[in-house]
Design a protein around this nucleic acid. Structure first.
Length: 572
RNA sequence: UGGGGUGUAGCCAAGCGGUAAGGCAACGGACUUUGACUCCGUCAUGCGUUGGUUCGAAUCCAUCCACCCCAGCCA
């Protein structure tokens, strides 16, 4: 969906940027030929779970297509199955779509808005001899349907009189028959090579309280019947759905042709998003939540919109991702690395830099005056001078990262080691003079000296050393909890069941690592939930909702690219 | 062995008869008070296969192969 300066052939405005994908091509052509005057799309989630990044692709596509073509996009809840749907989900879905940056204005609809229309149209189909009440059991219907290679056979109830069908259907509606005892079916073709055309079920009897219509109905329309009619009711022009519905298109068209609902929407299919190292099916996401593998739908490791939001992803980065992956009909698996690239790119421009020591190692500057603290000015974002600067305390006792010191440095290690020098970011060059250890031989503290002439911005600040470390001053440092996340699964394709194992066996046991002894610079004392920062040399972090004043909690959104880690890896 | 859909680089993806865009990843190098960022360079004589049409084919035709979807009173 990258944009190009394609001239707007419909004459709605020259050179407007249009998405580049086959659906846009169809739209451009429909506008050009006058098949449609304006375009109208819809995003039709079923409120039976939380939205995930795959839905984000659909949302960006549908709302994006509408916007780019000066059209409209509706939000419509596909709530035709009350046994699975809940108000909690409709609320979370609206929240997530809004958060992503899209707006349906006053065009919020529900498939259940059209239950009466669907019923009336069903009566009409019966009167025209195009639908009938079938008394076969579910098992019998399946048996009569035939197989992929054998045609089905007609239901013995297929040729009931119109009068009897009308009577029976009304009584179905009135609750005279038990659940599952009868269905209304379209009379199409039991020998069709397309299974969907073998007299599909239009209505089933189901006594379940609907989240909106309550107990008004005990019969509910099926998706295949309700969807095209809902589209038509809303004057949808381009009904975009995923590939698995391509086989349903002849049925979609059949309903439009035979019900004649007053407008002629058309269905187009694109490939759903797959991401490696994660699962996307609602069933599997639900299992992760219900069986406690993660801490809820918004766990920062989840590919849900709410999970990504809590993790610290920005809506801009997700929209950018959805643009970059494109829209096509080929089954594909996008590398999670692209999503990470998108958030890094976004936050690189936006996030304030700050210093945080995750695994502290104390150092004492033996030649620095005791009890002295000076406040050094450090830039907030080298990518954006408008972000200004802040004052950071510096003193005799500091903490650096344990990983930034090696008693016996390996080659190419240009951080701190005995006798070596490094610059402390925004401060001075220091030299490691002595290593202090405990009885077990663990390094507990470093004694260093600093070079007062090398203060950042000072006369000798140009002196070069190979490494620059982040640090925090001991007396002003603020404790914090930091949650480090890694991929939720160890394998690229956790969905694959080729090895016969359950996908939960492939969960990464280290997907969450909690660090409780972190120290951050005082600038972060006022950090608010959802604030995002770059912890220098670590990555991008956001303040988790669990965070409280005095008990800060940060989530790692994504690490910085780390070529040192790469060097170490290849060295092994 | 029925029907529908899809095959372009490690992963996405343009291309629509005129001689393979772009992004991610990777790999070199420059710069660097973040081993980040940024910048420069490299990365398909090749478009699932085999034939054919054409001056010319990823694009048209045929053939074969591979993968995905469909037998819910789910969506």
């Amino acid at each position: 969906m990258t944009t190009a300066g394609t001239p707007d052939e419909a004459g709605l405005g020259a050179n407007r940027d249009l998405p580049v994908n086959f659906i846009q091509d169809i739209i451009s052509n429909d506008l050009k030929t006058g098949k449609v005057r304006s375009i109208h799309t819809r995003f039709p989630p079923e409120p039976n779970g939380y939205l995930h990044i795959g839905h984000a692709k659909s949302i960006c596509l549908n709302f994006g297509l509408a916007k780019a073509n000066n059209g409209l996009c509706n939000l419509r809840f596909d709530d035709t199955n009350p046994s699975k749907e809940e108000t909690e989900f409709v609320e979370s879905i609206m929240r997530d779509v809004r958060w992503l940056g899209f707006d349906w204005d006053d065009r919020l609809y529900y498939a259940s808005d059209y239950f009466q229309d669907c019923y009336d149209w069903a009566v009409q189909l019966i009167k025209e001899g195009k639908a009938y009440v079938c008394d076969l059991s579910a098992e019998e219907i399946r048996a009569y349907r035939g197989t992929l290679t054998e045609p089905g056979k007609d239901s013995p109830y297929r040729n009931r009189s119109i009068e009897e069908n009308l009577d029976l259907f009304e009584r179905m509606k009135n609750g005279e028959f038990p659940d599952g005892s009868r269905v209304l079916r379209a009379k199409i073709d039991m020998a069709s090579p397309n299974m969907n055309m073998r007299d599909p079920v239009l209505y089933r009897i189901m006594r379940a309280t609907h989240h909106r219509t309550g107990d008004k109905w005990c019969i509910y329309p099926m998706y295949d019947y309700s969807h095209p009619l809902g589209d038509a009711k809303e004057n949808i022009t381009h009904s975009v759905c995923t590939l698995e519905f391509a086989d349903h298109r002849p049925l979609y068209d059949w309903f439009i042709e035979n019900v004649r609902p007053g407008s002629e929407p058309h269905q187009y299919e694109f490939a759903r998003l797959n991401l490696n190292y994660t699962v996307m099916s609602k069933r599997k996401l639900r299992r992760l939540v219900e069986e406690g593998f993660v801490n809820g739908w918004d766990d920062p490791r989840m590919p849900t919109i709410s999970g990504l939001r809590r993790r610290g992803y920005t809506p801009e980065s997700i929209r950018d991702f959805c643009e970059r992956i494109g829209v096509a009909k080929r089954d594909s698996v996008v590398d999670i690395g692209l999503l990470e690239h998108c958030i890094r790119e976004d936050l690189n421009k936006k996030a304030q830099r700050v210093m945080a020591v995750l695994k502290p190692l104390k150092i004492v500057l033996t030649n620095y005056p005791e009890n002295q603290v000076e406040w050094l000015e450090i830039e907030n974002n080298p990518e954006n001078s408008a972000a200004g600067s802040r004052k950071v305390p510096f003193g005799r006792e500091l903490y650096i990262e344990q990983d930034d010191f090696m008693e016996v440095p390996v080659k190419k290690f240009f951080r701190l080691f005995p006798g070596g020098e490094v610059r402390l970011k925004g401060a001075f060059i220091i030299k490691c003079e002595k290593v202090a250890k405990d009885a077990e031989g663990n390094i507990v503290q470093l004694y260093c000296t600093y070079d007062p002439d090398t203060r950042s911005g000072g006369p000798a600040s140009g002196r070069k050393v190979k490494g620059t470390l982040h640090w925090v001053e001991a007396s002003h440092a603020i404790p914090a909890e930091v949650r480090l996340y890694e991929k939720l699964f160890l394998v690229e394709d956790p969905d694959s069941d080729e090895d016969g194992t359950d996908f939960v066996t492939k969960i990464n046991p280290n997907s969450l690592q909690v660090l409780n002894n972190c120290l951050v610079e005082p600038e972060l004392a006022e950090a608010q939930v959802e604030d995002r920062f770059q912890f220098l040399r670590h990555g991008y972090f956001s303040v988790d909702p669990d965070s409280k004043p005095g008990a800060l909690v940060f989530n790692r959104i994504v690490s910085l690219r780390d070529s040192w880690a790469k060097i170490q890896k290849t060295a092994q």
